[in-house]
Design a protein around this nucleic acid. Structure first.
Lengths: 217, 217
DNA sequence: TTTTGTGAATTGCTTCACAGCA
DNA sequence: TGCTGTGAAGCAATTCACAAAA
């Protein structure tokens, strides 16, 4: 199995960018937008934009373009962000705390409804975010996933713990993982998205082609 | 201009993942690794691994594989992370503070040597990280870039300010940007890497295919 | 044997170019 | 005219498959 829809994965990624740009256009009172305008704003060709959108339906109007508000609604529906998602967060270190106070999640309909850690020092503590939550021990996860209808987990744990935590999270019934730990998760039969700052920094470093200073110690 | 080296961009991205995995292997006392082992750990084919590495040189030994430590050194040199990089950080909100206390930057040789904001409330304040720094006003940026030999900037500013800040940062002599704001930067003649959590969440949501709960308000 | 490095074949993605509609 | 949607063409990336090396 794997690859089934026939829609290129890059096209699905770009859908998110189209949505983001359309939200900018709507804030600028734009009513309609052409594939060329949308592409120019994002650095894609007009043909690319049309083909990508056409994978999902006929949203445009010849001679007019795409109606901005309508297209936003359609793309949200395609991506599944027209609905709310309950999310759990594992790991209450620096990164976990920062993510708790990050408003971007809720703005997109992703609500952190439970937080977990395995350190006695933090279990039972209250953490402030959009909601106030109590840090729970890992054992309580399965219960929380069921009662709160959780489908997504955010992993903000150290690299050495990530695989074990991922296994636990999966066993608790979670279906998708947003992984901030700099390791590749193995044998996780679910959707995984990874955020690794080191990777981005390395790409920048490569493209700047040697402008570093002293050798790293 | 654009695209010149003949090396596929995806191959350059994967180089970062190879490096990360090799660092895991070295921690496990592995001396050599085959393209198959490396690929399996990351979900790539063995042929992919060999072809990617071959773009940059002949690092392997038939019948043996790749020497882990040696390959790490070679990849670091290719990516430019065998040297230190001085980095400036713009925006001292929640995200900026979280990034200041993130050890992953320094671990890879990226050192935040100056921080900026345009709010009087935070300018002049001390922020703690690997080093203690004073938040500077935007006007002082050009000076700092020159005296500290800065080539990279991290943007942790609100979306509505990102374009303006990017222009300013570029004008100050910075050559690459790591952008955390959820907007596409336009007309920035430099290397740009973007981190957008919303995009990752949307990709997960899409792949889970409608398991959200109530409609978003 | 095992495993690399690499041309050839294949797959997949993007761009082209135009019919059709407003 | 302006713009979409789409088959065909072109290009880029991946996989195949094998000679050569240890």
């Amino acid at each position: 199995m794997g690859k089934s829809s026939g829609i290129p994965e890059p096209a699905i990624r770009r859908l998110s960018f189209y949505l983001r740009q359309l939200e900018t256009f709507v804030a600028q009172q734009e009513r309609t937008v052409s594939s060329r305008q949308l592409g120019d704003a994002l650095g894609f060709s007009d043909a690319q934009v049309r083909k990508d959108l056409a994978y999902f339906g006929q949203f445009g109007h010849p001679g007019i373009g795409y109606r901005v508000e309508g297209l936003i609604v359609r793309i949200r529906r395609i991506l599944g962000t027209d609905k709310n998602w309950n999310v759990l967060l594992v790991g209450m270190g620096n990164l976990g705390k920062a993510l708790m106070s990050y408003r971007g999640f809720a703005k997109k309909g992703f609500h952190i409804v439970a937080v977990f850690d395995n350190h006695d020092r933090v279990i039972g503590r209250r953490v402030d975010g959009p909601q106030r939550l109590i840090v729970q021990p890992m054992e309580d996860m399965e219960q929380a996933v069921k009662t709160l209808n959780v489908r997504l987990a955010v992993l903000a744990v150290p690299a050495h713990a990530a695989q074990e935590v991922a296994d636990h999270v999966l066993a608790s019934g979670v279906r998708g993982i947003l992984n901030f730990a700099p390791v590749a998760l193995r044998n996780v039969a679910c959707a995984v998205a990874a955020v690794d700052l080191a990777v981005h920094l390395e790409q920048l470093s490569f493209r700047l082609g040697g402008g570093g200073t002293s050798p790293t110690p």
